[in-house]
Design a protein around this nucleic acid. Structure first.
Lengths: 149, 149
DNA sequence: TTAATTACCTCATTTCATTAGATGCAAAAT
DNA sequence: ATTTTGCATCTAATGAAATGAGGTAATTAA
């Protein structure tokens, strides 16, 4: 990971569809060199993938929420495959504190959210839910700066 | 938004660098037709952008956490521009409940996280932090299914 | 010193994206 | 009923970009 790799990663984090040629102009090396670096970043697992950012409102997912779940340790084996298969769960983390899991979910309506929460409670246990009013920072990558900067 | 648009969105959500040709094969229409649909999806704001997915561990951001902040309503005007300019904040939402903001943050170490929390507390008020142990569902898009399915 | 490795370049080739022009279809207007 | 408009698509041709093949220089290991 040198300065050029960081620049490539920064650009791809804000525009994953940037062409090799664009990147080569920005980084002042040839496009075959860019291609080699990208596939190296991919092979090493630094770049995990590329995803389009969708406006959820416009595809009729009007409700976003964080659901916290209290889990017994032995329930995890059942919990993880379950939530991984629910497309409405867009992120899930195991965390410190009273509630062991924090999920970020999206649903068309509060009714759908309620149905899901009921299902979770029946299967696993106590939950606590925070509904999102507005998003001031939409999920984004970490821009990498150079050490000396 | 018809069946083909949903397919395009689904593919781009899992591989934003897919070529027009790849998409045209998957959707059974020509690549100029794909290009036209994509730029329409972009212009209409359904596709907001494309971002590379980075393995944070491998670029030395070892600590991920959720920080909840109690804000007075009039503090928001100061809070939003402040956090938008902090690259470590990868998401921030205004939510229901005792704490009005939920931030997702990443830092190289717990020390860096602690410094940030102290700064937030001094500037704005009470916080509550949950540190992430593990991530079972990494931030992902919502796969769209067809109505009849 | 020699060999091996790595990262890069340029140039040629191939593949892909884009443009232009033509077609077909559905809805609205004449 | 016919014409017109708008839209989405196609094919074919052009232009642009990605890839592959040498070849070079710098670095490290033998």
């Amino acid at each position: 990971m040198d300065k050029i790799d960081r620049k490539i990663v920064n650009i791809l984090q804000t525009n994953a569809r940037a062409s090799l040629k664009d990147l080569s102009k920005e980084c002042f090396i040839s496009s075959p060199a860019i291609a080699a670096r990208i596939s190296k970043l991919e092979r090493s697992g630094i770049i995990k993938g590329y995803q389009a950012d969708i406006n959820l409102e416009k595809i009729n997912f009007h409700v976003k929420a964080f659901i916290q779940v209290q889990l017994e340790p032995r329930q995890k084996k059942e919990f993880y495959p379950y939530i991984q298969n629910i497309p409405n769960v867009i992120e899930c983390n195991c965390v410190t504190g009273d509630f062991s899991e924090v999920m970020e979910v999206v649903f068309p309506s509060t009714t759908d959210l309620d149905d899901f929460i009921n299902d979770i409670q029946q299967r696993f246990g106590k939950t606590s839910t925070q509904i999102v009013f507005s998003t001031s920072v939409d999920h984004r990558g970490v821009q990498l700066s150079d050490p000396q900067e």
